[in-house]
Amino acid sequence: MTSHAAALLSAPRAALTPGTLDTPAPADDEVLVRVRAVAVNPVDWVVQGTSRITYRWLRTPAVLGSDVAGEVVAVGAAVTRFRVGQRVLGLATGTDRGRDPLREGAFQEYTTLLERLTAPTPDSLSDEEAAVFPLGLSTAACALFQSPHLGLRMPGDPAPGTARGVVVIWGGSTSVGMNAIQLARAAGYDVVTTASARNAATVRDLGADAVVDHRSPSAVAELVAAVGGRPVVGAVALGAGSTDACIDVLTRTGGDRLAMASTPVALDALVCRRRLFPAMLPVFARIGLGTLRSTLHARRRGIRANFVWGSSLRDDEMGPRLWGEVVPRLLAEGSLRPMPAPLVVGDSLDAVQGALDRQRAGVSAQKIVVRL
Protein backbone atom coordinates (compact mmCIF):
# COMPACT_ATOMS: atom_id res chain seq x y z
CA MET A 1 0.00 0.00 0.00
CA THR A 2 1.30 3.45 -0.90
CA SER A 3 1.15 6.50 1.35
CA HIS A 4 0.79 10.24 0.92
CA ALA A 5 1.16 13.51 2.82
CA ALA A 6 -1.71 15.17 4.66
CA ALA A 7 -2.34 18.21 6.85
CA LEU A 8 -3.71 16.54 9.98
CA LEU A 9 -5.88 17.82 12.79
CA SER A 10 -4.27 15.63 15.45
CA ALA A 11 -6.59 16.71 18.27
CA PRO A 12 -9.53 19.08 18.70
CA ARG A 13 -8.42 22.74 18.58
CA ALA A 14 -4.88 21.78 17.52
CA ALA A 15 -3.04 23.44 14.67
CA LEU A 16 -2.78 21.41 11.48
CA THR A 17 0.48 19.46 11.32
CA PRO A 18 2.19 17.38 8.60
CA GLY A 19 1.41 13.69 8.59
CA THR A 20 1.35 10.59 6.41
CA LEU A 21 -1.67 8.44 5.55
CA ASP A 22 -2.19 5.22 3.62
CA THR A 23 -3.55 6.02 0.16
CA PRO A 24 -6.95 4.33 -0.11
CA ALA A 25 -8.51 2.49 -3.02
CA PRO A 26 -11.79 4.07 -4.15
CA ALA A 27 -15.06 2.40 -3.19
CA ASP A 28 -17.43 1.35 -5.98
CA ASP A 29 -19.04 4.82 -6.20
CA GLU A 30 -15.88 6.87 -5.66
CA VAL A 31 -12.97 8.31 -7.57
CA LEU A 32 -9.49 8.65 -6.09
CA VAL A 33 -8.13 12.11 -6.88
CA ARG A 34 -4.63 13.54 -6.82
CA VAL A 35 -5.39 16.90 -5.24
CA ARG A 36 -3.88 19.90 -7.04
CA ALA A 37 -5.70 22.78 -5.32
CA VAL A 38 -7.91 23.22 -2.27
CA ALA A 39 -9.98 26.16 -1.10
CA VAL A 40 -10.75 27.22 2.45
CA ASN A 41 -14.21 27.86 3.91
CA PRO A 42 -15.24 29.32 7.30
CA VAL A 43 -16.52 25.89 8.34
CA ASP A 44 -12.94 24.60 8.25
CA TRP A 45 -11.71 26.82 11.08
CA VAL A 46 -15.04 26.41 12.90
CA VAL A 47 -14.53 22.63 12.91
CA GLN A 48 -10.90 23.05 13.94
CA GLY A 49 -11.75 25.36 16.82
CA THR A 50 -15.13 24.13 18.08
CA SER A 51 -15.60 20.51 16.97
CA ARG A 52 -15.88 19.31 20.56
CA ILE A 53 -19.21 21.16 20.59
CA THR A 54 -20.31 21.63 16.96
CA TYR A 55 -18.97 18.40 15.38
CA ARG A 56 -18.96 16.07 18.37
CA TRP A 57 -18.94 13.00 16.11
CA LEU A 58 -15.58 13.95 14.58
CA ARG A 59 -12.71 11.79 15.77
CA THR A 60 -9.10 12.86 15.49
CA PRO A 61 -6.76 12.58 13.76
CA ALA A 62 -8.82 14.00 10.92
CA VAL A 63 -8.35 15.71 7.58
CA LEU A 64 -10.46 18.82 7.13
CA GLY A 65 -11.57 20.61 3.97
CA SER A 66 -14.36 20.41 1.42
CA ASP A 67 -13.15 22.05 -1.81
CA VAL A 68 -11.04 19.88 -4.12
CA ALA A 69 -9.65 20.17 -7.64
CA GLY A 70 -7.25 17.69 -9.20
CA GLU A 71 -7.10 14.67 -11.48
CA VAL A 72 -8.50 11.16 -11.23
CA VAL A 73 -5.94 8.43 -10.54
CA ALA A 74 -8.34 5.50 -9.90
CA VAL A 75 -12.07 4.85 -10.29
CA GLY A 76 -14.46 2.58 -8.41
CA ALA A 77 -16.09 -0.42 -10.07
CA ALA A 78 -19.45 1.35 -10.51
CA VAL A 79 -18.08 4.69 -11.76
CA THR A 80 -19.14 5.53 -15.33
CA ARG A 81 -18.62 9.29 -15.68
CA PHE A 82 -14.87 9.58 -15.14
CA ARG A 83 -11.64 8.05 -16.37
CA VAL A 84 -8.10 7.97 -15.03
CA GLY A 85 -6.24 11.16 -15.91
CA GLN A 86 -9.35 13.34 -16.14
CA ARG A 87 -9.33 16.69 -14.36
CA VAL A 88 -12.17 17.10 -11.86
CA LEU A 89 -13.56 19.27 -9.09
CA GLY A 90 -15.68 17.95 -6.26
CA LEU A 91 -17.09 18.22 -2.77
CA ALA A 92 -15.26 16.31 -0.04
CA THR A 93 -17.59 15.39 2.84
CA GLY A 94 -15.23 13.68 5.26
CA THR A 95 -16.14 15.77 8.30
CA ASP A 96 -19.87 15.00 8.01
CA ARG A 97 -21.47 12.59 10.44
CA GLY A 98 -20.94 8.99 9.39
CA ARG A 99 -18.14 9.75 6.90
CA ASP A 100 -14.41 8.98 7.08
CA PRO A 101 -12.36 12.17 7.51
CA LEU A 102 -9.08 10.45 6.67
CA ARG A 103 -10.27 9.06 3.33
CA GLU A 104 -12.57 11.93 2.37
CA GLY A 105 -10.98 15.15 3.65
CA ALA A 106 -9.62 17.72 1.19
CA PHE A 107 -6.37 18.84 2.81
CA GLN A 108 -4.15 15.99 1.61
CA GLU A 109 -2.37 14.83 -1.54
CA TYR A 110 -4.91 12.12 -2.39
CA THR A 111 -8.58 11.96 -1.42
CA THR A 112 -11.67 10.03 -2.41
CA LEU A 113 -14.69 11.83 -3.85
CA LEU A 114 -18.15 10.44 -4.45
CA GLU A 115 -18.86 10.27 -8.17
CA ARG A 116 -22.23 11.96 -7.57
CA LEU A 117 -20.53 15.01 -6.02
CA THR A 118 -17.87 15.42 -8.71
CA ALA A 119 -17.79 17.22 -12.06
CA PRO A 120 -15.25 17.39 -14.89
CA THR A 121 -13.07 20.50 -14.92
CA PRO A 122 -13.25 22.24 -18.31
CA ASP A 123 -10.02 23.17 -20.05
CA SER A 124 -10.96 26.84 -19.63
CA LEU A 125 -10.47 26.65 -15.84
CA SER A 126 -7.29 26.24 -13.85
CA ASP A 127 -7.30 23.96 -10.79
CA GLU A 128 -7.12 27.06 -8.59
CA GLU A 129 -10.29 28.43 -10.20
CA ALA A 130 -12.08 25.08 -10.07
CA ALA A 131 -11.36 24.71 -6.35
CA VAL A 132 -13.49 27.73 -5.42
CA PHE A 133 -16.74 26.00 -6.44
CA PRO A 134 -17.66 22.89 -4.45
CA LEU A 135 -19.01 23.90 -1.03
CA GLY A 136 -20.24 27.38 -1.98
CA LEU A 137 -21.97 26.02 -5.08
CA SER A 138 -23.49 23.07 -3.22
CA THR A 139 -24.78 25.25 -0.39
CA ALA A 140 -26.30 27.72 -2.85
CA ALA A 141 -27.99 24.87 -4.74
CA CYS A 142 -29.41 23.40 -1.53
CA ALA A 143 -30.82 26.79 -0.53
CA LEU A 144 -32.42 27.41 -3.92
CA PHE A 145 -33.58 24.00 -5.10
CA GLN A 146 -34.13 21.62 -2.18
CA SER A 147 -37.79 21.29 -1.19
CA PRO A 148 -37.25 22.12 2.53
CA HIS A 149 -35.83 25.47 1.41
CA LEU A 150 -36.94 27.55 -1.61
CA GLY A 151 -37.79 24.50 -3.72
CA LEU A 152 -37.23 26.32 -7.03
CA ARG A 153 -36.94 24.71 -10.45
CA MET A 154 -33.38 23.86 -11.42
CA PRO A 155 -31.54 25.18 -14.48
CA GLY A 156 -32.84 23.24 -17.47
CA ASP A 157 -36.32 22.70 -16.04
CA PRO A 158 -39.13 24.16 -18.16
CA ALA A 159 -40.20 27.61 -16.98
CA PRO A 160 -43.91 28.17 -16.29
CA GLY A 161 -45.83 30.63 -18.41
CA THR A 162 -46.06 33.12 -15.54
CA ALA A 163 -44.03 36.19 -14.65
CA ARG A 164 -40.38 35.62 -13.66
CA GLY A 165 -40.03 35.30 -9.90
CA VAL A 166 -37.50 37.20 -7.81
CA VAL A 167 -34.99 35.66 -5.43
CA VAL A 168 -33.73 37.91 -2.62
CA ILE A 169 -30.15 37.15 -1.55
CA TRP A 170 -28.77 38.94 1.48
CA GLY A 171 -24.98 38.62 1.15
CA GLY A 172 -24.45 38.52 -2.60
CA SER A 173 -20.66 38.92 -2.45
CA THR A 174 -20.13 35.87 -0.21
CA SER A 175 -19.04 32.56 -1.72
CA VAL A 176 -22.54 31.11 -1.38
CA GLY A 177 -24.13 34.35 -2.54
CA MET A 178 -22.11 34.61 -5.75
CA ASN A 179 -22.97 31.03 -6.67
CA ALA A 180 -26.63 31.53 -5.71
CA ILE A 181 -26.90 34.54 -8.02
CA GLN A 182 -25.52 32.57 -10.95
CA LEU A 183 -27.65 29.48 -10.30
CA ALA A 184 -30.84 31.50 -9.81
CA ARG A 185 -30.25 33.39 -13.04
CA ALA A 186 -29.48 30.17 -14.91
CA ALA A 187 -32.79 28.77 -13.64
CA GLY A 188 -34.68 31.77 -15.01
CA TYR A 189 -35.19 33.92 -11.91
CA ASP A 190 -34.41 37.57 -11.28
CA VAL A 191 -32.17 38.43 -8.34
CA VAL A 192 -31.99 41.36 -5.96
CA THR A 193 -29.18 41.27 -3.46
CA THR A 194 -26.98 43.13 -1.00
CA ALA A 195 -23.26 43.83 -1.17
CA SER A 196 -20.86 46.55 -0.18
CA ALA A 197 -20.32 49.42 -2.58
CA ARG A 198 -16.90 47.96 -3.40
CA ASN A 199 -18.41 44.64 -4.52
CA ALA A 200 -21.64 45.91 -6.09
CA ALA A 201 -20.34 45.91 -9.66
CA THR A 202 -19.04 42.36 -9.29
CA VAL A 203 -22.35 40.86 -8.14
CA ARG A 204 -24.26 42.90 -10.72
CA ASP A 205 -21.98 41.46 -13.39
CA LEU A 206 -22.92 37.96 -12.17
CA GLY A 207 -26.56 38.68 -12.95
CA ALA A 208 -28.12 40.58 -10.06
CA ASP A 209 -30.49 43.21 -11.46
CA ALA A 210 -30.40 45.31 -8.26
CA VAL A 211 -27.72 45.63 -5.57
CA VAL A 212 -28.27 47.38 -2.23
CA ASP A 213 -25.57 48.30 0.27
CA HIS A 214 -26.11 45.97 3.23
CA ARG A 215 -24.83 48.66 5.62
CA SER A 216 -27.48 51.15 4.59
CA PRO A 217 -30.07 51.82 7.34
CA SER A 218 -32.72 51.65 4.62
CA ALA A 219 -31.43 48.42 3.03
CA VAL A 220 -34.68 46.52 3.61
CA ALA A 221 -36.80 49.30 2.09
CA GLU A 222 -34.41 49.55 -0.87
CA LEU A 223 -34.67 45.82 -1.54
CA VAL A 224 -38.45 46.00 -1.38
CA ALA A 225 -38.39 48.87 -3.85
CA ALA A 226 -36.05 46.89 -6.13
CA VAL A 227 -38.50 43.98 -6.15
CA GLY A 228 -41.02 46.44 -7.58
CA GLY A 229 -44.12 44.34 -7.06
CA ARG A 230 -42.79 41.23 -8.80
CA PRO A 231 -43.55 37.86 -7.15
CA VAL A 232 -40.86 36.93 -4.61
CA VAL A 233 -40.18 33.19 -4.62
CA GLY A 234 -37.96 33.24 -1.53
CA ALA A 235 -34.91 34.65 0.19
CA VAL A 236 -31.46 33.36 1.11
CA ALA A 237 -29.93 34.79 4.31
CA LEU A 238 -26.13 34.89 4.42
CA GLY A 239 -24.21 36.53 7.23
CA ALA A 240 -24.88 37.58 10.81
CA GLY A 241 -28.06 39.67 11.06
CA SER A 242 -29.32 38.61 7.65
CA THR A 243 -32.19 36.41 8.85
CA ASP A 244 -34.30 39.13 10.44
CA ALA A 245 -33.66 41.47 7.52
CA CYS A 246 -34.85 38.80 5.06
CA ILE A 247 -37.95 38.14 7.16
CA ASP A 248 -38.80 41.83 6.92
CA VAL A 249 -38.28 41.83 3.15
CA LEU A 250 -40.44 38.73 2.70
CA THR A 251 -43.18 40.13 4.92
CA ARG A 252 -43.33 43.30 2.86
CA THR A 253 -43.23 41.54 -0.52
CA GLY A 254 -45.42 38.50 0.12
CA GLY A 255 -42.68 35.88 -0.01
CA ASP A 256 -43.01 32.89 2.28
CA ARG A 257 -39.78 30.85 2.08
CA LEU A 258 -36.44 31.57 3.72
CA ALA A 259 -33.19 29.59 3.51
CA MET A 260 -30.83 30.41 6.39
CA ALA A 261 -27.15 29.67 5.84
CA SER A 262 -25.54 31.54 8.75
CA THR A 263 -25.73 31.53 12.53
CA PRO A 264 -26.97 34.75 14.18
CA VAL A 265 -23.63 35.15 15.98
CA ALA A 266 -20.20 34.76 14.38
CA LEU A 267 -17.85 32.19 15.94
CA ASP A 268 -14.50 33.74 15.02
CA ALA A 269 -13.92 35.35 18.44
CA LEU A 270 -14.65 32.07 20.20
CA VAL A 271 -12.34 30.01 17.98
CA CYS A 272 -9.26 32.02 18.91
CA ARG A 273 -9.86 31.67 22.68
CA ARG A 274 -7.40 29.49 24.54
CA ARG A 275 -10.28 27.59 26.14
CA LEU A 276 -13.81 26.96 24.91
CA PHE A 277 -15.25 26.72 28.41
CA PRO A 278 -16.69 28.90 29.87
CA ALA A 279 -16.45 31.39 26.98
CA MET A 280 -18.64 29.18 24.81
CA LEU A 281 -21.64 29.35 27.14
CA PRO A 282 -22.86 32.88 26.35
CA VAL A 283 -21.97 32.52 22.66
CA PHE A 284 -23.94 29.34 22.11
CA ALA A 285 -26.75 30.64 24.29
CA ARG A 286 -27.00 33.69 22.03
CA ILE A 287 -26.95 31.46 18.94
CA GLY A 288 -29.68 29.21 20.31
CA LEU A 289 -31.90 32.01 21.54
CA GLY A 290 -31.33 34.09 18.41
CA THR A 291 -32.21 31.18 16.15
CA LEU A 292 -35.33 30.37 18.15
CA ARG A 293 -36.44 33.99 18.12
CA SER A 294 -35.94 34.34 14.37
CA THR A 295 -37.68 31.05 13.64
CA LEU A 296 -40.71 32.02 15.73
CA HIS A 297 -40.69 35.47 14.15
CA ALA A 298 -40.77 33.89 10.69
CA ARG A 299 -43.52 31.45 11.66
CA ARG A 300 -45.72 34.27 12.96
CA ARG A 301 -45.31 35.98 9.59
CA GLY A 302 -46.29 32.82 7.70
CA ILE A 303 -42.73 32.24 6.47
CA ARG A 304 -41.16 28.78 6.35
CA ALA A 305 -37.55 29.12 7.47
CA ASN A 306 -34.96 26.31 7.61
CA PHE A 307 -31.20 26.08 7.96
CA VAL A 308 -29.17 24.95 4.96
CA TRP A 309 -26.58 22.17 5.22
CA GLY A 310 -24.47 22.37 2.07
CA SER A 311 -23.47 18.71 1.88
CA SER A 312 -27.02 17.37 2.41
CA LEU A 313 -27.31 16.96 -1.37
CA ARG A 314 -25.03 13.95 -1.02
CA ASP A 315 -28.04 11.87 0.03
CA ASP A 316 -30.87 13.25 -2.12
CA GLU A 317 -31.81 13.22 -5.79
CA MET A 318 -30.66 16.79 -6.36
CA GLY A 319 -26.96 16.12 -5.77
CA PRO A 320 -26.38 13.71 -8.68
CA ARG A 321 -28.37 15.95 -11.01
CA LEU A 322 -26.54 19.11 -9.94
CA TRP A 323 -23.05 17.64 -10.21
CA GLY A 324 -23.75 15.21 -13.04
CA GLU A 325 -25.82 17.43 -15.36
CA VAL A 326 -26.25 21.06 -14.33
CA VAL A 327 -22.72 22.00 -13.28
CA PRO A 328 -20.95 20.43 -16.30
CA ARG A 329 -23.41 22.09 -18.69
CA LEU A 330 -23.21 25.54 -17.09
CA LEU A 331 -19.41 25.38 -16.94
CA ALA A 332 -19.24 24.36 -20.59
CA GLU A 333 -21.55 27.21 -21.55
CA GLY A 334 -19.57 29.71 -19.48
CA SER A 335 -22.69 30.73 -17.56
CA LEU A 336 -21.15 29.54 -14.28
CA ARG A 337 -18.02 31.46 -13.43
CA PRO A 338 -15.46 30.66 -10.68
CA MET A 339 -16.45 33.12 -8.00
CA PRO A 340 -15.29 34.41 -5.59
CA ALA A 341 -12.01 34.83 -7.40
CA PRO A 342 -9.23 32.59 -6.04
CA LEU A 343 -6.57 34.18 -3.87
CA VAL A 344 -3.63 31.76 -3.85
CA VAL A 345 -1.70 31.98 -0.58
CA GLY A 346 0.63 28.98 -0.78
CA ASP A 347 1.94 26.01 -2.73
CA SER A 348 2.03 23.13 -0.26
CA LEU A 349 0.14 21.49 2.58
CA ASP A 350 2.33 23.46 4.98
CA ALA A 351 0.42 26.59 3.89
CA VAL A 352 -3.04 25.28 4.80
CA GLN A 353 -3.00 26.36 8.46
CA GLY A 354 -1.98 29.87 7.46
CA ALA A 355 -4.76 29.84 4.88
CA LEU A 356 -7.32 28.98 7.57
CA ASP A 357 -6.00 31.78 9.77
CA ARG A 358 -6.18 34.25 6.91
CA GLN A 359 -9.75 33.26 6.05
CA ARG A 360 -10.80 33.69 9.67
CA ALA A 361 -9.23 37.15 9.73
CA GLY A 362 -11.59 38.15 6.92
CA VAL A 363 -11.61 38.32 3.14
CA SER A 364 -14.04 40.07 0.82
CA ALA A 365 -15.19 38.73 -2.56
CA GLN A 366 -12.21 36.35 -2.70
CA LYS A 367 -11.64 32.72 -1.79
CA ILE A 368 -8.45 31.53 -0.16
CA VAL A 369 -6.78 28.78 -2.21
CA VAL A 370 -3.68 26.63 -1.69
CA ARG A 371 -1.93 24.78 -4.51
CA LEU A 372 -0.56 21.30 -3.86
Rank of each mutant, 00 (worst) to 15 (best):
A163L: 13
M154N: 00
Y110P: 04
V191L: 06
S51T: 02
V233I: 08
P122V: 11
S364K: 15
V192E: 14
L296W: 14
A27Q: 12
V75M: 02
A221L: 02
R358D: 02
M280N: 08
G255I: 13
L267T: 08
S294I: 03
L9D: 05
R300E: 06
V344G: 02
S216H: 09
G151M: 09
D67C: 13
N306I: 00
R215K: 07
L281D: 06
L267Q: 01
A187K: 10
R360P: 07
R274L: 15
T253E: 00
P18I: 05
V33E: 10
S51Q: 14
A78S: 11
G49A: 12
W45R: 02
M1G: 08
F82K: 01
E109D: 13
L21S: 08
G177Y: 05
G207H: 12
A269W: 06
D209L: 03
A210E: 02
R273V: 09
T263W: 10
L58S: 04
A141L: 08
A279F: 13
P160E: 10
T295V: 15
D268S: 14
G319I: 01
L223M: 13
L102A: 10
D157T: 02
C272H: 11
P12M: 03
S196L: 08
V283M: 06
Q108W: 12
D100C: 09
A5V: 05
D29Q: 13
D22N: 05
V166P: 13
Y189P: 04
S335L: 15
R36D: 12
A15N: 08
S138P: 15
G239D: 01
L183Y: 10
R286P: 05
I169S: 07
A92V: 14
G49W: 00
L16P: 12
L296D: 02
D157L: 00
T95L: 04
L21I: 08
A240I: 09
L223V: 15
P12H: 05
G207V: 00
L289Q: 15
V191H: 00
G161T: 10
A197M: 03
A131N: 04
S311M: 07
A186E: 01
V326H: 09
E325A: 15
V43S: 11
V345I: 10
R257D: 01
P328K: 12
R257T: 05
A365Q: 15
E222M: 04
R34D: 14
R286M: 11
T202M: 05
D209S: 03
D67H: 06
A141H: 11
V68W: 00
